[in-house]
Design a protein around this nucleic acid. Structure first.
Lengths: 320, 320
DNA sequence: CTGAAAGCGCTTACAG
DNA sequence: CTGAAAGCGCTTACAG
C-alpha cells in the first residue's frame, strides 16, 4: 500500500486516519486515497485494535426478555448515527449461560451499551478495561449518561386516561413472565401512583398469561368483588389482547362493561375487536437520546444529553 | 502471566489453547490455569486475531425487514450451541446505508451467517478474506451448507388446509411492505401450486396493509367477483388479523362466510376473535439445523446437515 | 518437554 | 513534511 502510492506507511496511516496536526499536501493525500481505492485496501481491524487499544465497535447488550417492538427502530437509528463516526453497532442477546465478560473480551468494543442494567462488577471490569459503559435504568431518576425510560410514567398515563373516561375501579393486568417483573413492577407502581393522586382505590392486580383461560380467571376475580372493576390497564398490548379475549369469553362488552388500555401500539392493537386503546412511545426522541448518550460517552467534551420528556402519548381507540 | 506461573509464554499459550500434540505434564498445566485464574488473565482478542488471522466471533447479518418472531429463538439456540466452542454470536441488522464490507472488516469474524441472501460480490470478498460464509436461501432447492426455509411449503399447506375445509375459491393476502416481497412471492407461489394440484382456480391476490381500510378494500375486491372468495391465506398472522378486521367491518362472518389462515402463531393469533388458524414452525428443528450448518462451516470434517423436513404444521383454530 | 525469537499489521513518538 | 523503528500481545515453527 505504501509502495503503491509512493509514500511511507506513516503517511498512509496519517492520511487514512485523517490525523490532524500534521500538514500533508492535498496532492499527497489524494494519491494515497486513490491507491487505497485501487487496491481495495482497508486497514486490519485487529491490528488497529491491538495497537491503539480501541476498536470501532459498539456492543449493545440486550436483556434476556423480549424488549418489545421498539427495539429494532432504536437500534436502527443508533446504527445510522454511529456510522457517521465510523462505528459499527453489534447486538448480543444476553441469554444463555455465558458470562458477559467472555463477550466483551472477545469483541473489544469501544462502548458497551446495556439495555438492561448491568451487574456492578461487570460494569467495573469493563471500565477497568478502558471500555466506555452506557447503562440503562428503568426509571427517570437515572444517572446522567444512562439510558432510561420512565416506566412509571406509562402506568400513570394509563390510569389518567381511564379516569378521564369516568372509571373509578381500575385493575392492573400484569404479565405472567417473571423476566418482565422489573418492568411490570415499575409500570404498576405508576398505576398505583396515578390512582392515589386521583383519589381512586388501589388497582387490583392479576397476572395474565397470553391465553384465554388465564384471562378469564383474571376477569372473574376482577368482577367478583363488591365493587366490580370497570377498567383494566394492561402491562402491554399482548396482555391487553388477552384481557379483551377474556372479557369476550365471559360475555362482557368492551368498553361498556370493562374498558382496556395497553402499551406499545403493536399492529395487532388497531386490528383487534374492539380496536385497542394504547400508549404510544415517541421512538424517534428515545432513539436520538440513546445515540446522544453513546456519543457523549465517546467524547468527554460532549455533554451527556438530557432525558427527553413527553415521550408517551395515549392513542385512544374503541376499547376505552 | 508467564512469570507468575514460572513457565514460558509458549507453555502458557499451549495450555490455555488446549494445544494437542505437545505433551505438557498435568502439574504444569494446572499451575498455568491456577495462575491465569488468580490474575484474571484473558488473552487479548485483538492480538490473537491479528496473529492467527481468525477470531472467535460469528457475525449474523439480519435482513432489513422484520424477520418475524422466530428469529430470537433461533439466535438463542445458535448462541448456546456455539458457546460450547468458545464462539460468540453477534447480530447486525443490515439496515442503513453502510456497506456490508465495512462491517465484516471491522469485526473480523470467523463465520458470517446471513439470514438473507448475500450479494454475490459481498460473498466472494468475505471468502477471499478467509471468512466462512453460511448464506440463506428462500427455498428448499438450496446448496448444501446453506440455511433455507421452504417458503413455498407454507403457502401449499395453507391452501391444503382450506381445501380440506371444503373451500374452492381461495384468495391470497400479500403484505404491502415491498421489503417482504421476496418472501411473499415464494409463499404465494406455494399457494398457487397448492391450488393447481387440487384443481382449484388460481388464488386472487391483494396486498393488505396493517390497517382496517386496506383490508376492507381487499375484502370488497375478493367478494365482488362472480365466484366470491370464501377463504383467505394470509402472508402472516398480522396480515391475517387485518383481513379478520376487514371482514368484520364488512359485516362478514368468519369462518362461515370467509375463512382465514395466517402464518407464525404470534400470541395475538390465539387471542383474536375468532381465534386465528395459523401455520406453526418447528423452531427447534430449524435452530438445530442452523447451528449444525455453522458448525459444519467451521470444520471441514463435519458433514453439512440435511434440511429438516416437516417443520411446518397447521394449528387449526376457529377462523377456518 | 520448554524457551528464545519471529512476526501478524498496524500507530505513533521521534529523527531527520 | 516524511521515513525508520519500536511495540501493541499474542501464536507458532524451530532449537535446544
Amino acid at each position: 500500500m505504501a509502495r503503491e502510492s509512493g509514500v511511507s506507511r506513516t503517511t498512509v496511516s496519517y492520511v487514512l486516519n485523517g490525523k490532524t496536526g500534521v500538514t500533508i499536501p492535498e496532492s499527497t493525500r489524494q494519491r494515497v486515497r486513490d491507491a487505497a481505492a485501487r487496491l481495495g485496501y482497508t486497514p486490519s481491524a485487529a491490528a488497529r485494535t491491538l495497537r491503539s487499544g480501541r476498536s470501532d465497535l459498539v456492543l449493545c447488550v440486550l436483556p434476556d426478555w423480549t424488549i418489545g417492538p421498539v427495539i429494532d427502530t432504536l437500534l436502527d437509528h443508533l446504527a445510522t448515527r454511529l456510522a457517521d463516526r465510523g462505528l459499527s453497532v453489534l447486538v448480543h442477546q444476553s441469554r444463555g449461560p455465558r458470562p458477559l465478560s467472555d463477550l466483551w473480551r472477545a469483541v473489544t468494543p469501544r462502548v458497551v451499551l446495556g439495555l438492561a442494567p448491568f451487574a456492578e462488577d461487570d460494569e467495573r471490569a469493563m471500565r477497568q478495561a478502558g471500555i466506555q459503559v452506557v447503562g440503562s435504568a428503568l426509571d427517570a431518576d437515572a444517572q446522567p449518561g444512562t439510558f432510561s425510560v420512565p416506566q412509571t410514567r406509562i402506568g400513570q398515563l394509563q390510569v389518567e386516561h381511564l379516569a378521564e373516561r369516568g372509571h373509578r375501579v381500575v385493575a392492573y393486568a400484569a404479565p405472567s413472565d417473571d423476566r418482565l417483573a422489573a418492568f411490570a413492577d415499575r409500570r404498576l407502581a405508576g398505576a398505583v401512583l396515578g390512582c392515589a393522586r386521583l383519589g381512586l382505590p388501589e388497582p387490583q392486580v392479576e397476572a395474565v398469561a397470553l391465553d384465554v383461560a388465564s384471562a378469564v380467571a383474571a376477569v372473574r376475580s376482577w368482577r367478583s368483588g363488591t365493587e366490580p372493576v370497570t377498567a383494566v390497564a394492561a402491562y402491554n398490548d399482548e396482555v391487553a389482547l388477552a384481557v379483551l379475549a377474556g372479557l369476550r369469553a365471559e360475555g362482557l362488552r368492551t368498553p361498556e362493561d370493562v374498558a382496556v388500555i395497553g402499551v406499545d401500539d403493536i399492529p395487532a392493537a388497531r386490528l383487534a375487536a374492539p380496536a385497542l386503546t394504547t400508549i404510544w412511545q415517541a421512538i424517534d426522541a428515545q432513539a436520538r437520546y440513546l445515540a446522544d448518550a453513546v456519543l457523549a460517552a465517546l467524547d468527554d467534551t460532549v455533554e451527556p444529553p438530557a432525558q427527553p420528556d413527553d415521550v408517551f402519548h395515549v392513542i385512544a381507540r374503541d376499547s376505552t
